[in-house]
Amino acid sequence: MTIRFSIYRYNPENDRRPYMQSYELQNDCGAVMLLDALLLIKQQDDSLSFRRSCREGVCGSDAVNINGRNGLACITPLKDLKQPVEVRPLPGRPVIRDLVVDLSQFYAQYRAVKPWLINNDPVPEIERLQSPAERDSLDGLYECILCACCSTSCPSFWWNPDRFLGPAALLQAWRFLADSRDQATGERLDDLEDPYRLFRCHTIMNCVEVCPKELNPTRAISQIKEMLVRRSL
């Protein structure tokens, strides 16, 4: 018995257009997660390119589209996947080669929300204190590993990747709006209040569906909207 794969291949230097290539692995090859399988396939065919690093769902570099659904190859068990396992690059991004996509626009949108603490008080001797409750409000926000599974599954991000911030960046925008130590709430809200940057979100919720960390960008986005409403009503 074998495990069958169909993997997206595209090398812009040689190929006129992308194509799907079939691969097979023996059932007893020892692969548990999809990433194990990809590494074994790369031993058969070293021209196959993909990103990976920590191989345990922490670094977020091996996000791919698996049987039509974005996810991290390293934490996707092979046995749950329908065969042939179709592996494609993250949708909507320019393909550099095979499963490697260009995420510079995704990172630019992340930078645009100023994902750092803005606090103009003198730096305290030890740390900026928070109450346990204030700290708890950051749970479900700070855990994002920027794998891009959410933003590249979002139709609004497919249509306007240059102007819509996308779920990942908006989750981080809310992470700093929700932070009791941050002092730039007003400026952050001013920057977000835009028909494209924030309001292209139509609560499709693909982001929630695919997040490998089970975070909820849609809820974060509604919290931003609620904060904007409270500010102006």
Partner: peptide
């Protein structure tokens, strides 16, 4: 930002 969109 266009500082609009909330009203709509």
């Amino acid at each position: 930002s266009a500082h609009s969109g909330l009203g709509e």
